[in-house]
Simulated scan of single mutants.
Amino acid sequence: MACNNDAIEYHTSLTSSVNETFDINLNETKQRFYDIKRDPHIEIVNFEAVIERRPTEIDETSLRVLKYKSPSFIATVTFRFPPIHSNECWKVGFVQACDFMLFQNQYGDLGYSSWEFPQLIVRDLSMINDSCGRNFPWYGSKNQVVTIQGPIYRQSEHTITMRDLFIPWIPWDIPTCEGEKSHLTHIYRHQRFYVWLCAMNCTNNELLIIRTIRWIQTIEIDVKPNLCRGIRAKLISNHEPEQPIFLKKNKFIPSCALQAPSANNAQLLVWRPTKGESAIVVNPKHHDNSTIKYLRLLNIDIR
C-alpha cells in the first residue's frame, strides 16, 4: 500500500488557557488588510520565514518503500498586542494554503503514480487549506495560533511558530502491489503555498491580514532500481531550496482556503499504468462534487 506520510509538525511550548467562547462562521467572515490607523496596534517585534538550508534526506533502509525528509519551512513571529478594555476575543496565527501540486513517481515504462487534489485540477477551487484539518482556518491549534481574551489592561507579548515539511513513503514496487521488487525510477514533487499572518476579531467575525508569504519547494530524485538499496536514489534537485518571499502587497485569502477540505483529507493517489486503466490506490478522506467530477473524467468509480 502506498502511503503519503507528509507531516505537519507541531511545537507545543506555548498553549492558550483561554476557552473558546465565540462560534465563528467562516462563510460570513469579513476580511480586510490590517490598517494600523484603525485597528489595534499590533507591534511586530520580529518576523522570520526560512526554508532550512540543507538538502532533502533520503532513506533507503526499508525493503518496501523509499522515504525522504524535506527541509522544513519555518515561520516565526514575535508581536506585542495592545490592551483590550472590552470583552473582545482575538486570535493571531498562521493560515496556509496550497495552490499547486505536481507529485509524480515514475516506474520506468510501467507507468507512474500521482498524488492529486481533484478540487485544484477541475478548478473548482483556486486553493486548498493546508492544515491539520481540526482548527480551520488556522494551520494548527498549538504554537501556530494564540488566543487573547479581553479585558487585558496591559500590553502582552506572544511568539507563534509554524513548521511544515514533507516525509512521504514511496513504494519501490508499483503501488497496486505490496511487493519488494524495485521498479521505482524517478520522483518529482513541486508544490506552491501561501502563508498569511492574520489577526481575527472573534467577537465581530473579522479577519485582518497582516502579512503574506509565498514559498515553493521542488524535490527531484533519480532512482536506479537495479542497484542495491542504499545507493539507488540520488537527489538531483537543488540541494539548497529556494527561500520564501514576503510579498510587497498583501493578498486576500480565498474563502475556499479558510475551510474544509484540508489538503491531507482531499488528496488521492492515482496509479496510471502505461497499459490498462488508471486506478485509485489511496482514496481521499473527503468526498465532494469536485472529487466525483474528477473521477468521472478519469472513468473511475470511487467507493
Rank of each mutant, 00 (worst) to 15 (best):
I128E: 10
F73M: 11
C177Q: 15
D23L: 04
C177T: 15
I216H: 13
W172C: 10
I84R: 04
I302L: 09
M200V: 14
I213W: 11
C228A: 13
Y188F: 14
G133L: 10
N27W: 02
T291D: 02
S290A: 14
P261E: 02
Q31D: 00
N27Y: 01
R123P: 05
L120Y: 08
I160D: 04
W196Q: 11
V282P: 00
S17L: 07
S114L: 10
E206P: 06
V77W: 02
F22N: 13
L110H: 14
H41Y: 00
Y107H: 12
I231G: 02
T15H: 04
M162Y: 04
E240N: 02
P261W: 00
N289L: 11
Q106T: 15
F117P: 06
R80Y: 01
N25T: 13
S290C: 07
A279V: 13
I24V: 13
P284A: 03
N19M: 09
R53I: 01
P261K: 05
D124Q: 14
N250A: 00
K275I: 10
F193C: 08
L125K: 15
G93N: 10
N205Y: 09
I231L: 01
T212I: 12
W138P: 06
R123M: 13
E240W: 00
Q217I: 15
I210T: 11
L258I: 10
A233E: 02
C98R: 14
F81H: 15
C177I: 12
N4I: 12
V92H: 05
A199C: 15
V92P: 08
K142C: 10
R54A: 00
V77D: 07
L66W: 04
I300K: 07
N4Q: 07
L120W: 06
V270I: 13
K30T: 06
S70D: 12
K91S: 15
L298G: 09
L207S: 04
R192F: 03
F73N: 07
L26Q: 05
K285N: 02
S141M: 11
L258H: 03
F100Q: 08
G140S: 12
R229P: 01
L208I: 09
E180C: 13
P261M: 03
N105W: 05
R32K: 05
I300R: 03
R272D: 02
G140P: 07
Q149I: 06
I187L: 13
N87I: 04
L298Q: 13
V95F: 05
P151N: 07
W215R: 06
I58W: 00
N299A: 11
Y188H: 15
I170H: 04
V282H: 01
C256G: 03
K275P: 01
A279Y: 02
I236Q: 03
L14N: 13
V18F: 04
N265M: 00
W115K: 11
L197S: 13
D6A: 09
Q31M: 10
G133T: 12
Q155D: 09
N27D: 12
I300L: 09
I221R: 10
R189N: 14
F246D: 06
I187W: 03
P55R: 02
M200K: 14
N105L: 04
E206Q: 13
W90E: 08
E242Q: 12
D124P: 09
T161A: 04
D99T: 05
E43F: 02
M101K: 13
V45K: 05
I8A: 03
M162V: 06
V281F: 01
E60P: 06
A233F: 02
R232F: 01
